[in-house]
């Protein structure tokens, strides 16, 4: 096969860019949060690819940790979003502006 590490890296970088772009343009907190997950996934692709090509386990184990952390982060984040929605009845970022003096 002709697919090499560059191709995986390119996929990873593109995914990262898409996620970042999403965070910049989207105003719905939930979708922003999904884009964050995309970025983390991009990192895992890169790690697994490097791990495969370098022949070491550390990248794979790191991915294991990243998935754990991401799940925890999502749980806390969604709890905060839900609690906020209960008080403000919106999750659109531009309307969450109490913190401007």
């Amino acid at each position: 096969m002709n697919i090499g590490i560059m191709d995986f890296l390119a996929t990873s970088a593109l995914l990262f860019a898409i996620g970042f772009f999403g965070i910049l343009v989207r105003r719905n907190t939930l979708v922003v949060y999904m884009c964050l997950e995309l970025m983390l996934n991009a990192v895992t692709i890169a790690l697994v690819a490097f791990s495969r090509y370098n022949g070491t386990m550390d990248g794979n184990v790191f991915v294991f940790f990243i998935i754990t952390v991401a799940a925890a982060e999502v749980a806390v984040g969604l709890a905060i979003i839900v609690a906020l929605f209960r008080r403000r009845h919106t999750i659109q970022l531009p309307q969450l502006n109490l913190l401007k003096h």
Binding site: G19, T29, V32, Y33, L36, A42, V76, I80, L84, R87
Partner: peptide, 16 residues
């Protein structure tokens, strides 16, 4: 909560 959410999102980006 709003502060928590802002910290969450921006910190998430930096983590990524």
């Amino acid at each position: 909560l709003e502060a928590g959410l802002k910290y969450l999102i921006l910190s998430g980006v930096s983590t990524a």
